[in-house]
Each structure stands twice: as structure tokens, then as C-alpha cells.
Design a protein around this nucleic acid. Structure first.
Lengths: 184, 184
DNA sequence: GTATAATATATGACCAGTCATATAATACCA
DNA sequence: TGGTATTATATGACTGGTCATATATTATAC
């Protein structure tokens, strides 16, 4: 399960609270692995039970106590085991394709509208991706580990390439449908 | 929810049992929307409750009775409503990228092995996709609705393009890591 | 003769993830 | 003065999906 291991991965950088972890997810892997706050806290409990992390309660007066989680040796071992383990190749679920599959029920203009909406979402996504490097720049400087930064950048590259491929498909498909219309 | 509506979509082609539906899923949309048998039966129950489908029990002597489900007018309306409704653009979860994100913990050869395993899975997927047109040929003939066949083909085209894009990313990334190794 | 596949429906247990909400203090803005 | 944001943890209810298994008959393969 990815959430568990992503948490181990973050705690391997530095000890953190559930709250910190939520922010870490939201500013890094959220585009390919969003994490729900409730799920993070419940997973931390489970990871503690398994001995992969330990808790250190840091009392605070002005705000709620912090529960700082530390990766244990067993946890670090599990992280590396998971990283090396083969992942089974599952095709990702694509809700849009379910609509496309049954789009024969729609008129041509309606099918085009469906694809235009999808394409608009993809373009917005690409714009968001384009803003990431600047946002990440100060991070990369702070971390000062070019090796880590290299792998982080790979995930963005993947996102851009796949989104572009999907957009090209959508645009060509729209053109295709419009051509069929003209011919008839 | 896609499963519900996919079932409505199939029942719009023809009345069917849960068993038939399972086969329909497995021979068409399984690459982007796999359906569990238990989930199909439970969803049919729910769709009946909502009045989108009706059941007709067809007694059989030699094997279990068939419960043939029929799409109602309300169900057909719901199918078209769903097809026309905008789908919110969510980035798909990509478990591999979680590993890549934390791959700084691995040695270069290990990171390459991770990507090689992924690439192998993608190549197998492309080979499977390449076999689909022949498999679907007799279907397309039987259906005799070129419009339906056109939309079905679009979903395959999407799969091929996205898988190729992912494979290119993986292959270029592998080369990239190997180049870095040589330089050092 | 024995095992497995196909036809057909169904339930129980479980899992990961989502959404809403609770608590409680401080800070800041209008 | 009221409303929202930030810090911080936690629970309850729910949803969609997975896995294993039960039942019962016929057909086919080894």
C-alpha cells in the first residue's frame, strides 16, 4: 500500500507530525497520490502498532501537543524492501473512457462537448504543472540533495508527458468527429 | 459512479443477467474499468431499488434461474444525464511514481531495475492491446453499428497512446540514469 | 473415476479512502 | 465583534471495491 510507504519515505527525510505529513503530501506527491488527513492519522497509528515508527509527544502550551513520529530501523528496512519489490502492473481506472465507450448514445456535438470538457481539464492541469518548478525551487535549494531533486523532477516529467499524450488524443479525436460530420 | 452507469450502458444494448454483465465487462472495458462479480450483483440490487432497472426471473431446470435485468425509461434517462454531465478532472493515482519519488534511497542500479520492471509491464500491456482488434472483429461484425464501434476503438487508441508515452518516459529515464553513472 | 470449467446468484469480511465534524487555542482581518 | 485561518489530533459514518467462499447442476477433459 502506497500511503503507508509514502509516510515512511517522508519520515525518512525527518521526524514529523501527522499535520506536517499532510502538508508534505499536499506540496509534493498530491498529483499522483493525494492523502486524506484522517487516513494519515489512522495510518500512523497502524505504523506505530507494527513498530515501523515511534511517537514522541512534544507538549505545547499555546496549541495542541505535537506527536512527532520517528522512523525506526524496522521502518527504514521496510521502506527499502518496498522500494525494491516489483509492483504489479495494473491498468489505471479512467472514468472518462467509460463515458467514451458509451458515447454512441450521444449526438456528435454532445460527444465533442464531452471531449472538450476533458481537454480543458487537461490544459488546466498542464498549466498547474508548469507552475511547479518555481514553487519547488526554494525546496530544492533547502534540501541540497541533487539526487533527491532528480527523482522528484522525474515524477513531474511523467505527469507532463502523460497529460500531453491524453490531450493530443482528445484533440485529434475531436477533429476526427468533426471531419466525419462534414463528410455526411 | 462509473460502475453503475456502465451497467446501465450495457443494459441499454440488451437486457442481461449479472453473469452476462460480468462477461461483458471482462471482454470490453476491463482495461480501464474492471468490475468485480460481487460488486456487479450488489449494484444491480441497488439499481433495482432506484427504479433504473427491473428484474425478470427466467426459470431454468438444468441450471440456476436467470435474473434478466431490463433498463427502464428512468434508467435510460439517467444514462444520458450522466453521459452529458461534466466529469471532474482528477489526476489518476500512480503507485509507481510514489516509488520513484523516494527512489533517492536506492542505488542507481536499483532505480534502473525499478524502471525496467515497470517498462516490461508496459510492453506486455502494448502487446495485449495489439491483440484486441482481432478479438473485437467478430463483435464489431455482430453489432453492425459502426458508430458504436468507432467509440469503442477510441478507448483502445487512448490506452495505446498513454502506454506508449509512459514507456518512452521510462526508457528515456533509464538512459538518463545510465548516462549520469558514466559521467561520475 | 476424478477434477475442473461453465452457468448462475449471493453473502461475509475486509480494506483504503472520503467527508463531516469535534475539540481547543491563537492570530488576524474587516 | 464576528468570521476565518492556522496549528494539531481524532472519531464516526460511509462508499466503492476486493477476496473468499457457498450453493447447485451439467459438461468436458484427463
Amino acid at each position: 500500500m502506497s500511503l503507508e510507504h509514502a509516510i515512511l519515505g517522508f519520515l525518512n527525510y525527518a521526524p514529523m507530525t501527522g499535520y506536517d505529513l499532510k502538508k508534505a503530501f499536499d506540496t509534493s506527491v498530491r498529483h499522483f497520490w493525494p492523502a486524506d488527513q484522517a487516513q494519515i492519522y489512522r495510518t500512523l497509528k497502524e505504523l506505530t502498532r507494527r513498530g515501523w515508527v515511534t511517537v514522541e509527544v512534544v507538549p505545547q502550551e499555546d496549541r495542541p501537543n505535537r506527536k512527532v513520529y520517528h522512523l525506526t530501523d524496522a521502518g527504514r528496512e521496510e521502506l527499502r524492501r518496498w522500494l525494491r519489490a516489483p509492483s504489479d502492473p495494473e491498468d489505471p481506472r479512467v472514468p472518462l473512457l467509460v463515458k467514451v465507450f458509451f458515447a454512441g448514445q450521444l449526438a456528435d456535438e454532445e460527444a465533442v462537448a464531452l471531449l472538450e470538457g476533458y481537454a480543458a481539464g487537461l490544459r488546466a492541469r498542464l498549466e498547474e504543472y508548469a507552475r511547479i518548478p518555481q514553487q519547488a525551487a526554494h525546496y530544492a535549494e533547502a534540501v541540497r540533495s541533487p539526487r533527491e531533486v532528480f527523482f522528484w523532477a522525474l515524477t513531474l516529467d511523467y505527469g507532463v508527458r502523460l497529460t500531453r499524450a491524453a490531450l493530443e488524443w482528445a484533440e485529434e479525436t475531436i477533429r476526427h468527429i468533426r471531419n466525419l460530420e462534414e463528410e455526411s
